[in-house]
C-alpha cells in the first residue's frame, strides 16, 4: 500500500499561535494587550486643589482608571485605559473634574506607546 502521511507536524506562525486549550495567563495589574485610551474624544481633567477625595471617580469608573495615591493623598488617572466616558465628571461630589477635548493640546495631549 501507499505509505502516504496524512499530516506532517503543523507549523503555526507566532502571531496566530494559541496556547493549549486557549488558556492564557491572567493579567496582573493591567491588560496591556487591550489599550483603550485611544477611544477618547474627551478626557477628564482634575483640579487637585478642589478635590476632596470623595472617591466617586475611583468607585464609578468602569475602566478602573482612577486610583488614590495614598501617600500623595491625590487621585491618579490612567491615560492608557480611560475611554473618556466621563462618568467621573458627572459623579464628582465637588465638581473638581472637567471634560477636556482630547485634541486640545494646551492641557497636554496623551501619547500612547504605540498607535493602535
Amino acid at each position: 500500500m501507499s505509505k502516504k502521511k496524512y499530516c506532517e507536524k503543523f507549523s503555526v506562525p507566532e502571531h496566530l499561535t494559541v496556547p493549549l486549550g486557549a488558556c492564557i495567563p491572567a493579567p496582573v495589574k493591567e491588560q496591556r494587550a487591550m489599550i483603550t485610551g485611544n477611544w477618547r474624544t474627551e478626557r477628564p481633567v482634575i483640579d487637585h486643589e478642589k478635590c476632596n477625595l470623595c472617591l466617586n471617580c475611583f468607585i464609578f469608573c468602569p475602566d478602573s482608571s482612577w486610583h488614590l495615591d495614598e501617600e500623595e493623598e491625590k487621585m491618579v488617572w490612567n491615560a492608557d485605559f480611560c475611554k473618556g466616558c466621563l462618568l467621573c465628571v458627572a459623579e464628582c461630589d465637588v465638581d473638581c473634574l472637567d471634560a477636556e477635548n482630547e485634541l486640545n493640546f494646551k492641557g497636554g495631549v496623551v501619547r500612547l506607546d504605540k498607535p493602535y
Binding site: F10, V12, A22, C23, I24
Partner: peptide
C-alpha cells in the same frame, strides 16, 4: 490564575483546531 477560553481572532481559529487535530 489563568483565563480559560477567551475569544480569539478569527485568524486563530485554524490554529486552535490544529491543536486538537
Amino acid at each position: 490564575p489563568i483565563s480559560h477560553g477567551p475569544q480569539i481572532y478569527p485568524d486563530q481559529g485554524p490554529a486552535i483546531n490544529l491543536q486538537r487535530a
